[in-house]
Amino acid sequence: MSPAATLLAATGSLEPAARSFLSPTGQEIVFLLVGIAVLGSAVVAVTTKQLVHAALWLIVALGGLAVEFLLLTAEFIAWVQVLIYLGSVVVLVLFGLMLTKAPIGRSPDADSKNRWVALAVALASAGTLVTLVVDAFRTSWIDLGAGGGSAAVTGASLFRNWVLPFEALSVLLLAALVGAIVLSRGDKRRVPAPRAGKLRAGRPVGSNGTVAATAPRTAPEAAGSAAGSSDAPSAGSSDAPSAPAASEES
C-alpha cells in the first residue's frame, strides 16, 4: 500500500459521516491503488528499451484501466475496453512488432532524441486534462449504484442523449473502412509494369532454369516463365488477380 493511501485510510476515520475526499471507502482505496499500478506500468511502457515489453506493459496499463472502469461500475465500458484495446489494438501492435522482427533484449534505437519534448507534451496534456476534469466536477458527487453503468443504461444514454455524435463517429469509421478498401483494391487499370521485363532482358527464351532461379518473383510467374511464355503482358495479367489476395493478407 502506498504512503498516500495509508495516510488517506488513517485520516478517513476522523470524519466518517462527511462525504469528503479524506474518507475513502474500500472501493476508493482499491481504485487509487490500481490507478497507481496503471500509472507505473504506463511509465514503464514508454521508458523501457525493449520494444515488445513496452507493448506488454501497455496491456497491463490498459487492463488496469478496465479494472478502474469496473470499480466505477461502468461494466460495459470495461469489457469494451478489454475487447477493443487488449484484444485488438495491442494484438495489432504486437503483430507490427513481430512483422518488423523486434529483437529480444534492448533496442539501441528505442530512444528518440526528442524525448524531453515528448515529456513536456505529455505533462502539458495531462495537466490540461486533470485541470479540466477537476474544474468541471469540482465537489459534485456521483453515486455509484450497482448497475449504473450497465449495458442498458449506457445504451439508453447513448441513443437518447448522444445519438448525433454517435452517428457522426460511425460515419467517420465508415469513411475509414471505405478508404481502406479503396486503397487495398488499388487501381485495376493501372496494372503495374511487370518487373519481369527488366529481369528478363537479354535472356534467351530457352534458358528456363536460369530465369526461374534468378528472378525473385512469385510462384505463378516463375512457373509461367519456366513454361517459356516470355511475353511481358501475359506475365503482367497473371500478376493482376493476385494483387487483391496479397493485400488481403496484409
Binding site: 461494466e75 460495459f76 469489457w79 478489454v82 475487447l83 487488449l86 484484444g87 494484438v91 449495458a151
Partner: peptide
C-alpha cells in the same frame, strides 16, 4: 450483466 461482451473480450486476451 454484459456477459456476452465479457466472454468475447476475455477470450481475445488468451491469444
Amino acid at each position: 450483466d454484459a456477459g456476452l461482451f465479457f466472454v468475447l473480450a476475455v477470450m481475445g486476451v488468451g491469444v
